[in-house]
Amino acid sequence: MLLDTPICDFGWKAPDFTLKNPYGDAFTMSEHLGEKGLLIMFICNHCPYVKAIATRLAKDTQQLMAEGINVLAVMSNDYQTVDADSPANMLRFAEQHGFSFPYLVDEDQQVGKQYGAVCTPDFFGFNHLGELQYRGRLDDARLQDDPNREPELVNAMQMIAAINKGPKQQTASMGCSIKWR
């Protein structure tokens, strides 16, 4: 089912969490909330929308991390029902697309629910205080690769890093619904 993300609730405080990657290494959100902010994104392996942007997502997040903006990805789908999203497949998908950010398993789906994540991809851009400043899309290229695309997520995160505020105009991300138990 195709869904759009809600509009940004500016200033909403990010709930802390600790999740593990498929190797069992734990990552705590508050430890990644750096001076230039934090991007938390809800993604999965099987969604055609995530697959379509995966290469651009890897490139854009590498740029953000190089600029000191931290990035965490969370997979909240019920992988017992959708085997393509299993931890083993998360490792393959991340390697295939060159993800350099931690890709975490939301085993009990609590983080997805706390954040109100609705689809994959769903992007949450926080300032250094953990206040939501961006809930938009990756770019304006949609499902196509476009060398002239507007990198809306990168631009928003750079703005948040510089002035702690995100752009007032944001276009919702769209994607597949999260597969809840």
Rank of each mutant, 00 (worst) to 15 (best):
K20V: 13
G68Y: 02
I53Q: 07
C44S: 06
H46Q: 14
C44Y: 03
V71Y: 01
Q62T: 15
G68P: 13
Y23S: 10
I43N: 01
E31F: 07
N70Y: 03
P22C: 12
G34I: 07
G68W: 02
T55S: 15
D25F: 10
C44V: 02
A58H: 10
M41T: 12
L19G: 02
E31N: 04
N21F: 06
A26D: 11
K59T: 15
F27E: 03
C47F: 06
A52C: 13
L64Y: 07
N70C: 13
Y23C: 08
C47W: 05
I43R: 00
F27K: 00
M65H: 12
A54N: 11
L19Q: 02
L64C: 11
T61L: 14
A66V: 10
E67M: 11
G34R: 01
F42M: 01
C47Y: 06
R56N: 15
I69M: 08
E67P: 04
G37K: 09
E67I: 09
I40N: 00
F42Q: 00
I40V: 14
F42L: 02
N21D: 15
D25I: 11
P48M: 09
Y49I: 09
K51H: 12
L39R: 01
G37V: 06
E31W: 04
I53M: 14
H32T: 07
E31R: 00
I53R: 01
I69E: 05
H32P: 03
M29L: 10
A58D: 12
D25P: 03
A26R: 00
P48D: 06
A66E: 08
T28G: 01
S30K: 08
D25Y: 12
K59P: 14
G24H: 12
E35N: 14
F42P: 02
I40Y: 00
V50P: 09
A26P: 12
F42D: 00
G37W: 05
M65N: 13
I40W: 00
G34H: 04
M65W: 06
L19P: 04
D60W: 13
P48V: 10
T55I: 12
L19H: 02
